[in-house]
Design a binder for these strands. Structure first.
Lengths: 221, 221
DNA sequence: CCTACCGATCGGTAGG
DNA sequence: CCTACCGATCGGTAGG
């Protein structure tokens, strides 16, 4: 015996469990698979991978629980697609930055901006999964994602190295600098809230001010 | 019908599920509760709160699944104790640093060292739960932990402010500097491995070098 | 994509 | 702290 849910999910209210919302007129048969990926990314961020059931995800797009498995062979496969989408989008954004040639300091600023766009902009739920849910992938999946992450971070290395050589960045071990800067950036997903607080440009300025020596290298050290 | 597990858990091998290891001679009846807290912290770190069952935790200390609830009224309560222990230990370590009066730059270095000790030293599993599992607390529990975290981070504010005034730290918005520095430090739990890589002192030096202007403030800006 | 269901596992409890 | 168990929920499947 089914109980029809009394209210559709007002996107942000308490978690819809068990039964899908039924609003047949808003069914777009086009890309249900993408709907599932987006809903999954959002729920994984809010409740974690292990705290989200396949029923929750199906329900969020108005499906019944079993139907999710018409699109994905397992819950893992869905997480894997979320994370792949996150990394490929991050890499695409980064590639655009790297295509235009600038001095190292300008490139660093643009890499930081691009990274914040990935972390804090629309679709940031995908990157959140990349940062925090790789534990739930199997070994092969994790290797693929790790490879993409390796490509991503390697793009920063020559930029940081040049900034070290020219004295704009003060650090003995460049690889540690990259890890620390990534930490400063990645942690922003835990606290940054554009609605009440600082703008994304203030954020970028703060990172640059904190880390880059603006004056002539000769004055440093 | 019970199946006696063939092997005790060699601490780091694959997850022991369902049945406790039975090695009666190593039963210390003293503080089983603390054993549970430590085992829980370790498992929460490896598999996440939602990925760890109360059976896993009980099994890790050689108990049967139901017996855990003689010590904790719920799984939540156990997580709460893990996180409280993490924060109280971090605050205790920090307080020791703040008791000895030094100049701001030295205090910052000691705060950073203390923070890394909490994040990367023994018992770091507790702080890991604080950083990543507060989502699984109820509102009141989360408020208590947030209060402790507030106290912890407030201790950094006057130090960073003085470093700003004296030009050792270059940033327009001190609160952003603190958040970024915390990010750089906290992210280290994701990658730092003392066994293969850099020492904790190299790590501290790298943070200081990245963020602090060593020379006379008059030469800056 | 829905209906109806499976075996496994979950957090937690009663009684000893 | 163990034994034995509960109802709920989990990921996933068969048949349509």
């Amino acid at each position: 015996m089914y109980v029809i849910p009394t209210e559709p999910d007002p996107s942000g209210a308490k978690r819809p469990r068990g039964r899908p919302r039924k609003t047949p007129e808003e069914r777009n048969d086009g890309n249900r698979r993408q709907d599932l990926v987006m809903a999954a990314a959002k729920l994984f961020r809010r409740h974690g991978f292990n705290g989200t059931s396949t029923r929750d995800i199906a329900c969020a797009v108005g499906m019944h629980s079993g139907s999710l498995f018409c699109h994905f062979k397992s819950k893992d496969a869905l997480l894997y697609e979320v994370m792949q989408k996150g990394m490929r989008s991050a890499l695409a954004r980064q590639t655009i930055v790297l295509l235009s040639e600038h001095d190292a300091a300008t490139t660093l600023r643009q890499l930081i901006r691009s990274h914040f766009d990935t972390l804090l902009g629309p679709n940031s739920d995908f990157m959140h999964a990349v940062l925090y849910e790789s534990r739930s992938l199997n070994t092969q999946q994790r290797n693929v994602i790790a490879k993409l992450q390796g490509d991503y971070k390697e793009a920063w290395t020559p930029v940081l190295q040049e900034l070290c050589l020219t004295g704009y960045l003060q650090v003995e071990v460049p690889v540690l600098a990259r890890l620390l800067i990534f930490g400063a950036l990645n942690w922003s997903v835990q606290w940054f809230d554009a609605k009440k607080g600082h703008s994304r440009d203030e954020l970028i300025d703060a990172v640059i001010a904190l880390v880059i020596r603006k004056r002539s290298p000769a004055l440093q050290k």
